[in-house]
Design a binder for these strands. Structure first.
Lengths: 136, 136
DNA sequence: GTAGATGCAAAGTATTTGCGACAAG
DNA sequence: CTTGTCGCAAATACTTTGCATCTAC
């Protein structure tokens, strides 16, 4: 287990409020990739007085602080995920919406090479695979 | 040169109106990846009476008909591009916003393999590289 | 004590839709 | 003719913001 979100807030100078603590806790416990509405529903169960504006403000702040990462998958709302040391990409089941995380070093390397080829240094990338489950 | 957008409309049974013809023409002549606002500005120069609702309806229709393809790059509005036989991905200059199209067969292959590995058939994918230009 | 965070409601964006008038096939 | 399209404005969906109040440090 790496640093908790609370520890990250401290080390990055992000003030810790009750609301932020709750949002951090919910995100840590979410292994899916909730959108803001879903996150709001989950935090509301812990503290019903939290407003959706605070949830929006907090995910944005956490994203800027490198605590969460934002995904904009096809045709939907922005979804968030805790950012850990291990980078990964996503394989999305187009039928069920299920998301599988994967890492492929070979692809990562090739991406860098492609950027180099055009005279760029890769600073970020987005790879999403959309698939249908095979009959087995 | 492959089929024109107008030809594609005919073969796909999409009714051709003046507005659609103009939008098709503008998209054909656009080598960048305009968003709806930008597209609206361009078509308005040809026919100022076209409404933005029609532009939205048309790009959606063209997308569903496989004539245009939609991109949702980071933190921006949806942008459209004419869909040709040649598939490609995008390398985006994070400073200037410039977009470079590229193809890398090796990456394409690896993507299929990754999907297979998890028991999926790849139906679509999205690969965007974000980079900064190297000093030369 | 003070700078920054919160809740609320109002304001912004981007996009979609209902409807009566109109045009393509 | 008849079905589908257009323009308009209103509606929707998601996200941001102004402001008065409150809270972490």
């Amino acid at each position: 287990m790496s640093e908790t979100i609370e520890q990250k807030c401290l080390s990055k100078g992000v003030k810790l409020t009750d609301q932020r603590r709750i949002i951090a806790q919910v995100m840590s416990q979410s292994s899916d990739h909730p959108d803001v509405d879903e996150l709001y529903i989950r935090v509301s169960k812990i503290d019903p007085k939290i407003s959706i504006a605070t949830v929006y403000r907090t995910v944005k702040l956490f994203e800027e602080s490198g605590i969460l990462t934002k995904h904009e998958f096809k045709g939907g709302k922005a979804r968030y995920e805790e950012l850990n040391e291990g980078h990964h990409d996503h394989l999305i089941d187009v039928k069920s919406g299920e998301i599988i995380e994967f890492v492929d070093e070979e692809i990562e390397e090739l991406q860098k090479k492609v950027a180099e080829k055009y005279g760029y240094t890769l600073v970020d990338h987005k790879l999403e695979l959309y698939g249908v489950k095979k009959k087995s």
